[in-house]
Amino acid sequence: MSSSTYPRRRSTHVIPNHFLLLLGIPRLLTLASQPSQYAHRVHLALDEVKAEYVTHNIDLQAKPAWFLEKINPEGTIPALSYGPKCAPDDPSPEAAAIPESLVILEFLADLFPNGGILPPNDPVARARARLLVAHFESVFTVAFKSAFYEGKSPQLVLDALLEFQARLPKDGFALGAWGMVEMSAAPFLVRTWMLLEHDFGHYPVGEGTKAWEALSKEDKFTRVRKYVEDMKAYPTFRGSWDEVRKLSVRS
């Protein structure tokens, strides 16, 4: 879908007179009917809190004027419009426009304090979650872009995974329960396994498969392998991910 409105989710968190509109577009590594890794983060958070929202896709090759003028002059996605109910392509002037996936996750954590994004009554745990997300963003996502988009060695991804793994607990999710860390990391980590296994990337042919074999077999990656398996099995993520369809588009 180049431009679509998804069915609304029934919400257990009532926000009178306000409307959530997620604006995004599929990128290189995704399907037209599913979000990029950045928009995927926001979809995971919205679905976890059972928010009622509408998604409207933006063509980044032909950005509409209303998006640049009313939502995000930088032109990046995802972006969230929060305000009075309106047509997806005609946001209300009273609406708040919020770009950047991690900023949106923080906003949703405030909007839905008991929704499971951040622990509601534990400032220390909230700080730990934010520190892990900050580390992941500054180390792993940089390595991800370098390998898959810029053609640098997948070894950068493996090294970044080991750094992130060292910050995880011995088992389970980062803070015990699924939350912001997993919403931030899962879209990147699950794609990493898929892309390496099928040697998709701008690095030399064969380098991805070689890195995937190391991830799959070497003991030093045991913890992060289990972490990714647990995330893939989590209901909110499982309902948002269709690897077979993604691979059919990439093939």
Rank of each mutant, 00 (worst) to 15 (best):
G83F: 13
G83I: 02
C86N: 14
A87T: 09
P88I: 08
P88L: 10
P88T: 10
D89R: 07
D89L: 02
D90I: 03
P91T: 11
S92C: 11
S92L: 06
S92F: 03
E94G: 04
E94W: 04
A95Y: 09
A95I: 10
A97R: 08
I98D: 03
E100R: 10
S101D: 02
L102P: 00
L102D: 13
V103A: 12
V103T: 14
I104Q: 03
I104T: 08
L105A: 05
L108A: 03
A109E: 08
D110Y: 06
L111C: 09
L111S: 14
F112K: 05
N114E: 14
G115R: 06
G116R: 06
G116Q: 11
G116A: 09
G116Y: 07
I117Q: 01
L118H: 10
P119H: 11
P120K: 14
N121A: 13
N121C: 09
D122E: 08
D122W: 04
P123H: 04
P123C: 03
V124A: 05
V124L: 08
R126K: 13
R126W: 05
R126V: 08
R128C: 03
R128K: 15
A129N: 05
A129E: 03
L131A: 15
L131C: 07
V133E: 08
A134N: 15
A134D: 12
A134F: 12
H135C: 00
F136R: 08
S138Y: 00
S138K: 13
A143M: 06
F144Y: 15
K145Q: 07
S146P: 00
A147L: 07
Y149F: 15
G151S: 10
P154N: 04
V157R: 09
V157M: 04
V157Q: 02
L158G: 02
L158M: 03
D159Y: 12
A160L: 00
L161G: 02
L161I: 01
F164L: 14
R167N: 06
R167L: 15
L168N: 06
G172N: 10
G172A: 09
G172T: 12
G176R: 07
A177N: 13
W178M: 10
W178R: 09
W178E: 00
G179K: 04
G179M: 07
G179N: 11
M180S: 13
E182I: 05
E182A: 08
M183P: 05
S184E: 02
S184L: 04
A185R: 03
A185S: 15
A185I: 04
A186T: 12
P187G: 09
P187Q: 08
R191T: 06
R191H: 13
T192W: 10
W193H: 12
W193K: 04
M194T: 11
M194C: 03
M194V: 11
M194H: 03
M194G: 01
L196Q: 13
E197P: 05
E197Q: 15
H198S: 05
D199M: 01
D199K: 06
F200H: 14
F200P: 00
G201E: 03
G201N: 04
G201C: 04
H202Q: 13
Y203I: 01
P204F: 14
V205N: 02
V205W: 00
G206S: 07
G208A: 01
T209S: 13
K210W: 07
A211V: 04
A211F: 11
A211Y: 10
A214Y: 02
A214Q: 15
L215F: 12
L215Y: 12
L215R: 02
S216W: 00
S216F: 08
S216A: 15
S216E: 11
